[in-house]
Protein backbone atom coordinates (compact mmCIF):
# COMPACT_ATOMS: atom_id res chain seq x y z
CA UNK A 1 0.00 0.00 0.00
CA UNK A 2 1.18 3.49 -0.70
CA UNK A 3 2.58 5.73 1.98
CA UNK A 4 -0.12 8.28 1.29
CA UNK A 5 -2.69 5.87 2.65
CA UNK A 6 -0.91 5.58 6.00
CA UNK A 7 -0.39 9.34 6.21
CA UNK A 8 -4.04 10.00 5.49
CA UNK A 9 -5.09 7.37 7.99
CA UNK A 10 -2.88 8.71 10.76
CA UNK A 11 -3.92 12.32 10.23
CA UNK A 12 -7.51 11.15 9.95
CA UNK A 13 -7.42 9.14 13.17
CA UNK A 14 -5.74 11.99 15.03
CA UNK A 15 -8.37 14.39 13.68
CA UNK A 16 -11.20 12.06 14.71
CA UNK A 17 -9.85 11.66 18.25
CA UNK A 18 -9.29 15.41 18.63
CA UNK A 19 -12.77 16.11 17.23
CA UNK A 20 -14.31 13.62 19.66
CA UNK A 21 -12.43 15.24 22.51
CA UNK A 22 -13.50 18.75 21.56
CA UNK A 23 -17.05 17.56 21.00
CA UNK A 24 -17.18 15.85 24.38
CA UNK A 25 -15.82 18.86 26.27
CA UNK A 26 -18.12 21.22 24.35
CA UNK A 27 -21.30 19.18 24.79
CA UNK A 28 -20.50 18.50 28.43
CA UNK A 29 -20.11 22.23 29.01
CA UNK A 30 -23.39 22.99 27.27
CA UNK A 31 -25.25 20.35 29.26
CA UNK A 32 -23.86 21.68 32.54
CA UNK A 33 -24.73 25.26 31.59
CA UNK A 34 -28.26 24.19 30.74
CA UNK A 35 -28.64 22.42 34.06
CA UNK A 36 -27.46 25.52 35.88
CA UNK A 37 -29.91 27.63 33.92
CA UNK A 38 -32.72 25.19 34.74
CA UNK A 39 -31.90 25.35 38.41
CA UNK A 40 -31.79 29.12 38.19
CA UNK A 41 -35.18 29.14 36.50
CA UNK A 42 -36.57 26.85 39.18
CA UNK A 43 -35.65 29.54 41.67
CA UNK A 44 -32.69 27.81 43.28
CA UNK A 45 -29.96 30.39 43.59
CA UNK A 46 -26.51 30.01 44.90
CA UNK A 47 -25.84 31.40 48.28
CA UNK A 48 -22.95 33.82 48.01
CA UNK A 49 -21.08 31.60 50.45
CA UNK A 50 -21.34 28.89 47.83
CA UNK A 51 -18.71 30.66 45.78
CA UNK A 52 -16.01 28.93 47.77
CA UNK A 53 -17.99 25.78 48.23
CA UNK A 54 -18.10 25.15 44.51
CA UNK A 55 -14.56 23.85 44.58
CA UNK A 56 -14.24 22.36 48.00
CA UNK A 57 -17.68 20.94 48.70
Amino acid sequence: MSHGFYIALSYGSAAVIVALLIGWVWLDGRARRRELAELEAAGIHRRSADARKGGSA
Binding site: V25, G29, R32, R33, L36, L39, A42, D50, G54
Partner: peptide, 27 residues
Protein backbone atom coordinates in the same frame (compact mmCIF):
# COMPACT_ATOMS: atom_id res chain seq x y z
CA UNK B 1 -2.27 25.19 23.16
CA UNK B 2 -5.04 22.77 22.20
CA UNK B 3 -4.38 20.93 25.44
CA UNK B 4 -4.51 24.09 27.53
CA UNK B 5 -7.72 25.28 25.87
CA UNK B 6 -9.42 21.95 26.41
CA UNK B 7 -8.05 21.70 29.92
CA UNK B 8 -9.50 25.07 30.89
CA UNK B 9 -12.83 24.14 29.33
CA UNK B 10 -12.88 20.76 31.07
CA UNK B 11 -12.02 22.39 34.39
CA UNK B 12 -14.87 24.84 33.86
CA UNK B 13 -17.22 21.94 33.13
CA UNK B 14 -16.11 20.17 36.27
CA UNK B 15 -16.74 23.27 38.41
CA UNK B 16 -20.18 23.63 36.88
CA UNK B 17 -20.90 19.96 37.48
CA UNK B 18 -20.02 20.31 41.16
CA UNK B 19 -22.22 23.38 41.46
CA UNK B 20 -25.12 21.56 39.88
CA UNK B 21 -24.82 18.65 42.32
CA UNK B 22 -24.37 21.01 45.27
CA UNK B 23 -27.44 23.02 44.30
CA UNK B 24 -29.50 19.90 43.63
CA UNK B 25 -28.60 18.63 47.08
CA UNK B 26 -29.53 21.97 48.59
CA UNK B 27 -32.82 22.04 46.72
Amino acid sequence: FLFFTLHLMAMRNEIWRRRVTAQRRMA
